[in-house]
Design a protein around this nucleic acid. Structure first.
Lengths: 240, 240
DNA sequence: CTACTGTATACTGTATACAATACCATTAAG
DNA sequence: CTTAATGGTATTGTATACAGTATACAGTAG
């Protein structure tokens, strides 16, 4: 008669909730890059005391989403173009490993889920005012890449990539909100997916990985180029 | 007359010192894996109040050096063989990127420093009681790999690799203290170094990277095999 | 002897208090 | 008019208090 063996829904502690909320505020741009973080203000904003705030900040600091400026004040981190390039290099190295793992281990459910994510993204084809769909596209993009990492079965790979993604998200809130060219990911994602699917279905997956690897590399290189270009053109208009 | 532009030696705050000390205690094995971390005990041990302890723990938790067990108590993390394999995969992906970067960008000083580290390691040739030299070898090993990452000029790569290294160090404190076969790194390191040096000195470094990449791969695969073997033989003797 | 329950104890989560420091503005001195 | 001194305010660093929760132990009923 053991119906619910679930060890009870333990409510998240305040510092965990604070961490989540603060991280979300940063990644959404609500707390924009370089803004100073004042413990007392945040405590009031989230309706908690300073203690949980500090614990949350320490975690974000370790992930480099929060950094200390030269006078020691804590601020939301800013990501430069140089950082973006370096992060893309790390990302490519890690995602190639992820794709390789996915080619060998992805479950049918995971493959199906990838397909769904791409199809969903394809729904949002070229709406004239694509601005409102932009966050959705980004979220779908993130989920797709994360799912590949998860499919590899490598827990640490997921953790490492998540950190890289967070910093890239931070870069995005600094750059233009709407970059129509992001829509190109739809095609590139399908290429990656088909590479993984083909390898997974192949009799000798080990030998059939190459196209998938090539696809993820092409995708990320193109993505990197788009981001760099977007940031640079943004900086020009800013200087005018 | 600006002699010291250094922005003043700001004394580390207690929570930073606590973080360092706690991390060191974990990585050195003084606080062995799976030991329960009790805030009040740690506070007494380090002579501070619970507040800085908590902040330090939160950071270590984010790096997965500290984890919560099923009843929510915080413990020093334990790394399994499966984890080690996955970590080595991540490590190889990242270190190949590091070697590539080092081939293109390492400064003369950095190359010299690599040479020194290897030479130092070679000093400790086969002393009969190698046990006492074991920690030194590990430290030299770590520094060599870290230096390669730094030579790539990729700040994020260094951060990510550092996290991987920490977890591998944690695995090591679980496994046998003295594994004589670690000494083999001396030869393998020199291979890696010579690959990097050759590429760096080459007229077309971009084309001369392959040997260095091959060397780091060989080194890490061999290292992975040694670690896995060591852990497995350890488990056998434990079960007897 | 075993199982249950109550109580003391230990620990964590959170808030708050207090001290030290950095920042800012205003005023006084040169 | 500029610079230095001074006080006040904002903010962080750290300790501690207190409440809620888990854990262990003992005593009691079966």
């Amino acid at each position: 008669m053991a119906l619910s063996l679930a060890p009870i829904q333990r409510p998240k502690s305040l510092h965990e909730q604070t961490y989540d909320a603060l991280r979300a505020s940063i990644l959404s741009g609500e707390l924009p890059p370089n803004v100073r973080l004042v413990e007392t203000q945040l405590a009031e904003k989230f309706g908690v005391s300073r203690t949980p705030i500090r614990e949350a900040i320490r975690q974000l600091q370790r992930e480099a989403l929060v950094t200390a400026d030269d006078s020691g004040n804590l601020r939301v981190a800013t990501i430069t173009v140089a950082d973006a390039v370096q992060l893309y290099d790390c990302r490519l190295a890690l995602e190639q490993l992820a794709v390789e793992g996915a080619c060998l281990q992805a479950s049918d459910a995971q493959l199906q889920c990838m397909d769904d994510l791409i199809t969903q993204a394809e729904q949002y084809i070229t709406p004239p005012t694509s601005t409102q769909y932009y966050p959705i596209m980004l979220e779908l993009d993130y989920q797709f890449h994360r799912l590949i990492a998860e499919s590899s079965g490598n827990r640490w790979l997921v953790m490492l990539l998540e950190q890289v993604f967070d910093k890239m998200a931070l870069l995005r809130v600094q750059t233009t909100r709407s970059n129509p060219r992001v829509l190109e990911i739809r095609f590139e994602h399908r290429q990656v997916y088909q590479g993984i699917l083909a390898a997974r279905r192949s009799d000798h997956p080990q030998a059939a990985i190459a196209p998938a690897l090539q696809a993820i590399q092409t995708h990320l290189m193109a993505s990197k180029a788009r981001v760099v270009e977007a940031v640079q053109s943004l900086q020009q208009t800013t200087q005018n």
